[in-house]
């Protein structure tokens, strides 16, 4: 007589086997020149991009069912990868997870509605977009970094000399050691965290309608800072040299403006929230 436990094990085995059969892996290789363009459009699933050791683009794709295909195309110095949903595909069966290696100087465009988008150790332009996608970009230098999400969290870490633009409706945006000529975050209700030193001579504009903004900076930062909220409140842990003239009224508790550090190399920092709190924090020296 077959025990209940055996039946369960067989059933689990069948399910696992079915999953393994449905899941398949594909690998693609492309040879490209300097400053190649690589685009991955993936309706459902994650995309992770890392630098390759040479002038090749390598794409590893894990397809979660036979209801999705991977279309690939190389046109000169441009490589386009696209998940092609077939009839009946949904968020689960249409899922593809990508690992992509590109030359570090390649420009990368990633798109996924639901998966995590990751890019690291690149110095070509990076553009990442997805409604519910979480975004994680780290160790990128001398590049444009453009991010668009609806509610996915955005984490930017160690972006040097970047032209950074983040648009997020409600996702939390966290930046650590991000600097460059332009760092701009626009959000409707998401919280914005900045931990860094605002570089030098850049423009930093962090704006959210109802979310909070928190900037944690070392005391030696050089910046021309203005913070303003309409219905929220502002807190400033760092003494600023007040400015003689500001073009808006500096209402106590609702706005502050001033300079810190060396004026000659100072960045312009604009913090705006309609109803959220704005807090300029001093970073402890031991960090």
């Amino acid at each position: 007589m077959v025990s209940g436990r055996t039946v369960k094990l067989v059933a689990i085995g069948v399910i696992v086997a079915g999953t393994l059969v449905a899941e398949s892996k594909k690998e693609y290789h492309f040879t490209v020149g300097p400053k190649a363009g690589v685009s991955v459009m993936n309706p459902y699933g994650s995309i992770s991009v890392k630098p390759s050791l040479n002038n090749t683009v390598v794409v590893n794709a894990v397809l979660h069912s036979d209801k999705v295909e991977v279309d690939n195309n190389q046109n000169g110095n441009r490589v386009d990868i696209q998940s092609h949903l077939l009839a009946g595909a949904d968020a689960e069966s249409g899922r593809v997870d990508y690992e992509v290696w590109v030359p570090a100087d390649a420009s990368v465009t990633l798109h996924s509605s639901t998966g995590t988008l990751r890019a690291e150790k690149l110095h070509g332009d990076v553009s990442l977009e997805g409604a519910g996608a979480e975004v994680d970009v780290r160790d990128v230098s001398d590049a444009h970094v453009h991010v668009k999400t609806m509610n996915g969290a955005v984490n930017l870490d160690n972006i040097k000399n970047g032209h950074v633009e983040v648009d997020s409706l409600s996702g939390e945006v966290t930046m650590r050691s991000v600097n460059g000529p332009l760092v701009q975050v626009v959000s409707t209700s998401g919280r914005i965290n900045y931990i860094g030193d605002f570089g030098n001579s850049g423009e930093y504009r962090l704006s959210t309608h109802s979310g909070d903004i928190e900037a944690t900076i070392p005391e030696w930062t050089s910046a021309d800072v203005s913070a303003r909220t309409t219905r929220g409140e502002v807190h400033d842990d760092i003494p600023l040299q007040p400015k003689n003239h500001t073009w808006f009224a500096v209402d106590k508790g609702r706005a502050f403006a001033g300079t810190m550090g060396k004026v000659a190399v100072s960045s312009t920092v604009v913090l705006r929230s309609f109803s959220g709190k704005i807090h300029l924090r001093k970073r402890p020296e031991n960090k």
């Binding site: 309706p43 459902y44 209801k67 998940s83 949903l85 077939l86 009839a87 009946g88 595909a89 249409g94 798109h111 509605s113 977009e129 997805g130 409604a131 668009k148 609806m150 648009d167 409706l169 626009v186 959000s187 409707t188 704006s207 309608h209 303003r228 073009w247 808006f248 705006r272 309609f274």
Partner: peptide, 28 residues
């Protein structure tokens, strides 16, 4: 108020982006 005007522009930009994302969703 330049801030107010910019906020309005940003808000419309965000709305435009929301539509764009809804439109970009893939269909089989």
């Amino acid at each position: 108020d330049a801030d107010a005007r910019r906020s309005l522009m940003d808000a419309y930009h965000q709305k435009s982006m929301l539509f764009e994302m809804a439109m970009d969703r893939p269909l089989p």
